[in-house]
Simulated assay, not measured.
Amino acid sequence: MLLSVRNVTKTYSGQNMGRAVLRDVSLDLAAGDTLALTGESGSGKSTLLHLVGALDTFDSGEITLMGQTYGALGDTGRAALRRQSLALVFQQFNLIPSLSVLQNVTFQARLAGQHDQAWVNQLIDRLGLSDLTDRFPEQLSGGQQQRVAIGRALAPRPQLLLADEPTGNLDETSSQAVLDLMLDLVADSGTALFLVTHSQQIANRLNRRLHLSGGHLQ
């Protein structure tokens, strides 16, 4: 099993009392599998994704990725995990404005010491970015920026790809095209995909689906 989440609880402190966003959440994800997480706005979908991405800490329970337990990792270990084993695609793209398309795509792989030019060339070709490599993010459409973000995430060949509403800013046609590319590339690289979405149509394209409501998975 690639990813194991066991009885994870996350509480945010309010003015008068703590608010449990996640309550005893458990799930497993195997290598190469795809999982969609749905739920109403504010249900904790992004919170769970951020916990799995080692971007936040949980109150109780445990998360294990490739045999590494998050609770045993300090800040340095969590940063290394994000750099070497995980990749994230956000709704807001988060491209580096001062870097070209090619530099953005290769940024994470170079940072992780996992740059493979042949794989990068394949990604750029499959993502339809071959004629855009010298452009900067501000010169791209939303769909093009999202494809660059996906390329950057997959360039290091991560074991786990986390995607938070990756097509939320795109129209329906662009959303389906980007999802098609993401699923094809994930399948080719053997990467597992954990995707948060409000769209049942998108969720139905993945192998497995879970719904988060009231802090519990259904």
Rank of each mutant, 00 (worst) to 15 (best):
H50K: 07
H50I: 03
V52S: 08
V52D: 05
V52H: 10
A54M: 06
L55A: 03
L55N: 07
T57E: 14
T57P: 01
T57S: 15
T57G: 14
T57R: 15
F58T: 04
F58G: 06
S60W: 11
G61D: 02
G61L: 06
G61C: 12
E62N: 14
E62Y: 09
E62G: 12
E62H: 07
I63A: 07
T64P: 05
L65R: 03
M66G: 04
M66P: 03
M66N: 11
Q68A: 13
Y70H: 15
G71W: 03
L73Y: 05
L73C: 06
G74A: 11
G74N: 15
G74V: 11
T76P: 01
T76I: 11
T76H: 12
A80N: 14
L81R: 07
R82V: 00
V89S: 04
F90G: 03
Q92H: 11
F93I: 06
N94P: 06
N94I: 07
L95S: 00
L95D: 02
L95K: 00
P97A: 10
S98L: 11
S100M: 12
S100N: 11
L102R: 15
L102K: 14
N104V: 10
N104A: 07
V105L: 15
T106Q: 09
Q108W: 08
Q108G: 06
A109F: 04
A109T: 03
A109I: 06
R110A: 07
R110F: 03
L111E: 11
A112Q: 05
Q114W: 02
Q114D: 08
H115D: 12
D116W: 12
D116C: 14
Q117C: 09
Q117N: 13
A118Q: 09
A118K: 07
W119D: 01
W119T: 02
N121I: 02
L123Q: 00
I124Q: 03
I124G: 02
D125K: 10
D125C: 10
L127Y: 00
L127N: 04
G128I: 01
L129Y: 12
S130V: 11
S130N: 10
S130A: 15
D131H: 13
L132S: 09
L132T: 08
L132I: 02
L132C: 10
T133L: 14
D134W: 10
D134Q: 15
R135I: 12
F136M: 13
P137W: 01
Q139F: 09
G143N: 08
G143Y: 13
Q145E: 05
Q146C: 12
Q146F: 09
V148G: 01
A149Q: 02
A149N: 00
A149M: 00
A149D: 01
I150C: 03
G151N: 09
G151D: 08
G151K: 00
G151V: 07
G151H: 03
A153M: 04
L154D: 05
A155C: 09
A155G: 04
A155Q: 06
P156G: 07
P156R: 10
P158E: 08
P158W: 02
Q159A: 15
Q159E: 13
L160M: 06
L161V: 05
L161W: 01
L162E: 04
L162T: 08
L162Y: 08
L162I: 10
A163M: 01
T167G: 02
T167R: 01
T167L: 01
G168I: 09
N169K: 13
N169D: 14
L170R: 02
E172V: 13
E172K: 14
T173V: 13
T173W: 02
S174W: 03
Q176N: 12
